[in-house]
Design a protein around this nucleic acid. Structure first.
Length: 749
RNA sequence: GGACGAUUAGCUCAGCUGGUUAGAGCGCUUCAUUGACAUUGAAGAGGUCACUGGUUCGAGUCCAGUAUCGUCCACCA
């Protein structure tokens, strides 16, 4: 027995070597062949800061498709990349800073950016290596990082194009602001949690109304009731004087359809600055907006003696003050309602009004809807996800693309401070002391250069004048020009990823775009798939991918979502070390229905490890047979075929057909189940067992069949289990074809 | 509040366009040990396919309703 065949298959002895072999032979590098149709996949770019989790292992579906198409002889390209993941990375980084007793406010933005860069860089290398461990057939010669200068330049170009087409605007809108993360979020980035709070019934002029937030009273500019509500109709359009804790003030009485007459007392106080619904009402009725909470989460000077208090303290303090003034009717302390929280840190979201950059999405969503309706892009599984896609696209709101964080490309707009003296600035002076205020104040003490070099952030009024190019002010020709400090929402970059990566190499875009398949978990259908559709079509006139394949979520062996708090997280790296990458890969696809949850357990991975070992031992058995030279070449009509041979071959032919068909239709679960069943229970348990008797009688034809069926099976199995199949191929069949990954897919004819 | 998905063996799940005795993996029971593999082999137990009604010659599979669980979207001051 050759040393090459120890009794068990030890994946760890082969994986690294085989991946190296594939890379050396450039097996994964796509070559353009204009006579053939390409097959292209974009890897959903992992976050540069993110260590591998089980979700990344699910990209095995893309690897299966990639390897299958390589074997089919298609020019195949699977593009890897990494995302700087603005918010995610900065959040992780700030947690690290906090441990060192520091915060982002200790640095000017340029310095902060540099440290963040190094932080992300460390992890980016790890990330690459982990994708290799999974055996992924990625074309590393086309790897891209979202912060590469060339990629960033294309993103800025997209912004300018959108701006030119009138699809970018600065709007003073109510946004979801997290006072802890210090940035606004899009609607998709907030979570609602159910919480018990007090509902205060307060005396409000002639009314009694219910509110959960008495502290925002200083921002009230109206009260609203449902049109036609008899209780309040007589007050319509009146200015009513209200007794407040800081003295009397007046509000207007308006009627609005959005008010539920059955809630509370059917009338609400309108606080446009700090409530999304109230903001809309204010827009409809031309009410003024007052800001009573600042970005620091504290009440502003409008709150009088309550200013400087944090929201929660202020709520209690205002409540007590109102009680003293006999302005509280009663309190319902067990009021359950949903509260918006930051998806990142869980802090209660503070709806706030301030200027942000928006993309008008309606004109982009139309074509994106149309493309799916007419089948240019197919969403799979259709029944489940197309409707969700349409629902979202049809009621899409404008997209807030500005984030008040450092980690990411800055929006390419420049303000002249001399033309916009109201721009709010925060910076570190030359003594590293933090200074904030409008330019017209700080310029008395600080030079432009000092502000510019210590800059942390700025906030320009909604109607501030800006220009899209660096350089002197186009109006006053002054040079006190400063770039917007808001950075792009990460999804604005990744939404253009297929276009921008392919445009990085001459010829690639023209050949590989639109890509063939985009595979991702359904949780980012809106974040990513929807945005890629909109921006892809906008930039190129063509859809970014022909098929959007939604894969399943990995859950634990009891079908429960994995989470750190439940302590049921499975680490793919540990699984690979213990059972091998093939075993993990197989465990993630075998028997899994499209887009249903994948229940993963140690036992299942172990079972798949056993399967890999079974294959190994089939190879071992065949290798123990007669010398290769004594075995006649296989041919379906060769002399000496026994009935059981013919029977096996018929069954095997069906297997080839079904596997091909299943792969073409994304039925990976069934394909693997059939392969498993055939290899183990037909080929090994039955056919090989019988072959042993024939072997003793000196039958060599049986080895022709064994070798043919086995080598062809390795091809069928290779997309799923690349390592063990290639290891066996290298041992037994490489004279037929040097690399299994490059061997041609069987036709069964 | 709206939508979607799930409900099949002890556990986790397959079962495509309806067609003879309903499948797999793990677990369980019994037996087998030096010649591919104990990361194994052989045999076996175990299911009124959530419930109710309907369509059909025929339903786990299609339709309607009910219940339970799960997920997503919206969000009520």
């Amino acid at each position: 027995m050759a040393l090459a065949f120890p009794k068990t298959f030890d994946a760890s002895l082969h994986e690294e070597k085989l991946y190296q072999l594939w890379e050396d032979k450039k097996a994964f590098q796509a070559v353009i062949d204009k006579d053939k149709k390409p097959f292209t996949i974009i890897l959903p770019l992992p976050n540069a800061n993110d260590p591998m989790h089980i979700g990344h292992a699910m990209f095995v579906i893309e690897d299966i498709l990639t390897r299958y198409h390589i074997m089919r002889g298609d020019p195949t390209l699977w593009i890897p990349g990494a995302d700087h993941a603005g918010m995610e990375t900065q959040y992780m980084f700030e947690k690290k800073l906090a441990k060192e007793g520091k915060s982002r406010f200790d640095f000017d933005r340029e310095t902060l950016y540099k440290i963040l860069w190094d932080f992300a860089e460390e992890n980016r290398a790890i990330n690459k290596n982990q994708l290799k461990k999974l055996g992924f057939a990625l074309d590393w010669s086309r790897y891209h990082y979202s912060l590469e200068p060339e990629i960033v330049e294309r993103v800025l170009e997209t912004f300018r194009k959108l701006h030119h087409d009138g699809l970018i605007y600065r709007g003073e809108r109510i946004v979801n602001y997290c006072t802890r993360c210090g940035t606004a979020f899009s609607d998709l980035e907030i979570n609602y949690i159910e919480r018990k709070d007090s509902l205060y019934y307060i005396k409000y002029g002639p009314f009694i109304l219910a509110t959960t937030r008495p502290e925002t009273k200083f921002g009230d500019t109206a009260v609203a009731f449902h049109p036609g509500d008899k209780r309040y109709e007589k007050y319509l359009n009146q200015e009513i004087e209200i007794q407040g804790v800081n003295g009397p003030f007046t509000v207007k009485v308006v009627a609005d359809d959005e008010i539920d007459p059955d809630f509370g007392t059917g009338i609400e106080k309108v606080t446009p600055g700090h409530d999304p619904l109230d903001f809309e009402i204010a827009q409809r009725h031309n009410l003024p907006v007052k800001k009573v909470i600042g970005t620091d989460g504290k009440l502003t000077e409008l709150a009088g003696r309550f200013s400087g208090m944090k929201v929660n303290e202020a709520r209690q303090a205002v409540f007590e003050a109102m009680q003293e003034m006999n302005l509280i009717d009663h309190v319902d302390e067990n009021y359950m309602h949903n509260v918006a929280t930051c998806y990142k840190c869980g802090t209660t979201i503070e709806p706030m009004v301030f200027p942000q950059w928006f993309v008008k999405t309606k004109p982009l969503a139309g074509p994106a809807i149309q493309a799916v309706k007419n089948g240019e892009t197919k969403i799979f599984p259709k029944r489940r996800f197309e409707k969700i896609y349409f629902d979202w696209m049809e009621k899409i709101k404008d997209w807030n693309i500005s984030r008040q964080i450092v980690w990411g490309p800055r929006i390419p707009a420049w303000y002249c401070l001399d033309c916009n003296e109201a721009v709010q600035l925060s910076f570190l002076d030359k003594n590293k002391k933090r200074v904030s205020g409008p330019y017209k104040n700080v310029k008395q003490t600080y030079s432009f250069d000092e502000i510019h070099s210590g800059l942390q952030s700025l906030s320009a009024p909604k109607d501030a004048s800006y220009q899209l190019n660096h350089g002197k002010c186009e109006r006053c020709h002054g040079s006190n020009v400063i770039q917007e400090t808001d950075t792009f929402d990460t999804w604005f970059l990744s939404g253009q990823w297929p276009v921008n990566t392919l445009r990085s190499r001459p010829g690639d875009f023209e050949y590989f775009y639109p890509t063939s398949v985009l595979d991702t978990m359904w949780d980012i259908l809106f974040f990513w798939v929807g945005r890629m559709m909109m921006l892809g079509i906008y930039l190129t006139g063509e859809v970014p991918f022909k098929i959007a394949h939604m894969h399943a979520r990995v859950v634990d062996k009891f079908g429960k979502k994995m989470s750190k708090s439940k302590n049921n997280v499975i680490d793919p790296a540990i699984m690979i070390n213990q059972y091998g990458a093939d075993a993990l890969r197989m465990a993630l696809v075998l028997g899994v229905a499209p887009a249903s949850d994948v229940s993963l357990s140690d036992e299942k991975v172990k079972g798949m490890r056993n399967f890999a070992n079974k294959l190994w031992n089939i190879g071992r058995f065949i290798s123990m047979g007669p010398d290769n030279k004594k075995i006649p070449a296989f041919n379906e009509k060769m002399q000496g075929l026994a009935p059981e041979d013919t029977q096996l071959l018929v069954s095997f032919k069906k297997l080839i057909k079904h596997t091909t068909n299943d792969l073409d239709n994304f039925r990976f679960g069934r394909a693997t189940e059939n392969l498993y069943q055939f290899m183990w229970h037909e080929f090994a348990d039955v056919y090989i067992e019988r072959a042993k008797a024939r072997m003793k009688q000196g039958d060599v034809v049986v080895f022709s069949v064994l070798r043919y069926v086995f080598s062809t099976s390795l091809k069928l199995l290779h997309p799923f289990m690349p390592f063990v199949t290639e290891a066996l191929w290298q041992e037994m069949f490489k004279q037929e074809e040097p690399l299994l990954v490059k061997a041609s897919w069987p036709t069964g004819k």
